[in-house]
């Protein structure tokens, strides 16, 4: 054993290192947002978010990225709605209709945990293969299906976590009053409502930011998406394409587009935060 002095010194050094790591990890967030803000702000203009790309846009001429913003909102919006419609009943089924200790519930939850970890490029590759097999070209529809599959595990896992915070007594009391399981489920939904919106926002955030899945399935287009079987532009892809251009103006627009995406994500994060504090107040 070292003497007390060296031991206390070690304690101090270790604590210093821990504080430093904490600061580095937290600081990286501000660093990333700061870099994008610093580079993107000078290029941000009203034109960027209200206009479509015009002729020569990718050579640095006029236009905006409205096509990508709307494309992303459509894609993420529809995919999130679908994922919610599919995911929420699944989470309710796993917790209310069958016993949480049953094999089916346990294995299903494990599978959703794993699906959550499967990277979007794999979803994209499978989606692409299926589309080629059926002769469907890259389109909004293909993207929506891929992104829906990608976000279902997020919804299921988040809602499942929420339901587990509800005391079991609520289920027992409601059942003993003669309610059916379906009616119990409705009581639960009422109870975790703010939390369900959190799940929806999380899924939306993931959906709007995904590249690898849409790259293979959605394609890209300079027009507004009018029909579901047409290719559509998405914001992350627009950033990626513009950034790989050698022309400074186009690169600058990539920074500005990145800034727009950052704003969207930050709005989502803030809403999530507000909703989850609401859910905490809701606690029994």
């Amino acid at each position: 054993m070292d003497n007390l002095k060296t031991r206390l010194f070690k304690e101090k050094v270790a604590k210093g290192f821990m504080q430093l790591s904490g600061m580095l990890v937290t600081g990286s967030l501000f660093f990333i947002i700061g870099t994008i803000l610093y580079k993107g702000l000078p290029y941000l203009s009203w034109e960027m978010i209200t206009q479509l790309p015009k002729g020569g846009f990718y050579m640095g001429k006029e236009g905006g990225i409205l096509n990508a913003i709307l494309g992303s909102l459509y894609l993420a919006g529809v995919a999130t709605v679908l994922a919610t419609i599919i995911g929420v009943p699944i989470a309710l089924f796993l917790n209310i209709y069958i016993k949480t200790s049953s094999k089916l519930a346990q294995y299903s939850k494990l599978m959703f945990d794993i699906l959550y970890g499967i990277p979007s490029i794999v979803y994209g590759a499978v989606g692409f293969t299926i589309m080629v097999y059926f002769g469907i070209r890259a389109s909004l529809l293909g993207g929506i299906i891929t992104i829906t599959l990608l976000t279902i595990p997020i919804v299921v896992r988040t809602v499942d976590e929420l339901i587990r915070t509800v005391p079991n007594d609520l289920k027992h009391v409601t059942l003993s009053l003669g309610a059916t399981n379906w009616e119990v489920a409705k009581v639960f939904i009422l109870h975790i409502k703010p939390g369900i919106f959190t799940a929806i926002l999380l899924a939306f955030g993931r959906a709007i930011g995904d590249v690898a899945g849409v790259l293979l399935t959605t394609g890209f287009s300079d027009n507004l998406p009018r029909y579901i079987d047409e290719p559509a532009a998405t914001l992350p892809l627009a950033i990626f394409f513009q950034l790989s251009s050698p022309i400074p103006e186009v690169q600058g627009r990539a920074y500005a587009s990145a800034l727009i995406l950052t704003f969207i994500i930050l709005i989502i994060v803030i809403c999530t935060h507000i909703l989850s504090s609401k859910q905490n107040k809701h606690k029994l």
Partner: peptide
Amino acid sequence: AAIPPVLYGVW
């Protein structure tokens, strides 16, 4: 965790 991969790429 919420920041999309493409923004990490831009950074």
